[in-house]
Simulated assay, not measured.
Amino acid sequence: MELNKNCMYCMEDENRDNLMIEICQLDVSTVFLFKEQTYTGRCNVVYKDHVKELYQLEEQELAAFMNDVKKVAAAIDKTYQPNKINYGAYGDTMHHMHMHIVPKYEGKENWGSTFEMNPSKTYLSDEEYKTMIEKIKKNIV
């Protein structure tokens, strides 16, 4: 794997750790819980290598990554029963393949609209993060 020294995912740096907490490793990705939890259960699935675009992945790699995304979305659904899960693969400024898994709840924040990247409204205690991570990890199959 080629590391990009400007990438918080490649460098596993403080910027990444200020935003999210590692949940587990899957086949070709790492799963993180966002610290900002306006959307209860929001996670990020980060591809193992520094790849910018989905089309740059070989067919098997793409299938494996999407399977990791599927596992995380299913775990979020089982754990928190959102009304819908939104998926976001942006990366305008962070050129490392990752997928936001954002549970949405009818009548709550941004229902019927695009989720906010970082609304900075809901942060939890260390114990609450730990409990969430344990629940999500238990449901990742």
Rank of each mutant, 00 (worst) to 15 (best):
L54G: 01
T79W: 05
V69C: 14
P103G: 09
H96Y: 04
G88H: 09
Q60S: 13
Y90G: 13
Y105M: 11
I101F: 06
I23E: 02
Y129M: 01
N83K: 08
N139F: 11
L54R: 00
Q37S: 09
Q60A: 15
L3S: 09
H96M: 09
C43G: 05
M66G: 01
A74G: 06
V28H: 00
S120A: 13
L19H: 08
M94T: 12
A89W: 01
S120I: 04
R16C: 10
E12N: 15
M99W: 04
N4W: 00
M20Q: 14
K78H: 06
D13P: 01
D77K: 15
A74T: 08
V102S: 01
A63K: 11
Y55F: 14
M66V: 13
N4D: 12
D27H: 03
K108A: 06
E14F: 10
K121M: 09
N4M: 02
E36K: 11
D126A: 15
K71Y: 03
M117W: 08
M99H: 05
S113Q: 07
D126M: 14
Y123G: 06
T114P: 02
S120M: 12
N67R: 12
A74N: 15
N4Q: 03
A63I: 10
P103Q: 07
L62V: 06
P103W: 02
M94G: 06
N4R: 02
P82K: 04
S120Y: 08
K137Q: 14
H95E: 15
Y123C: 04
N18L: 12
K130L: 13
W111G: 05
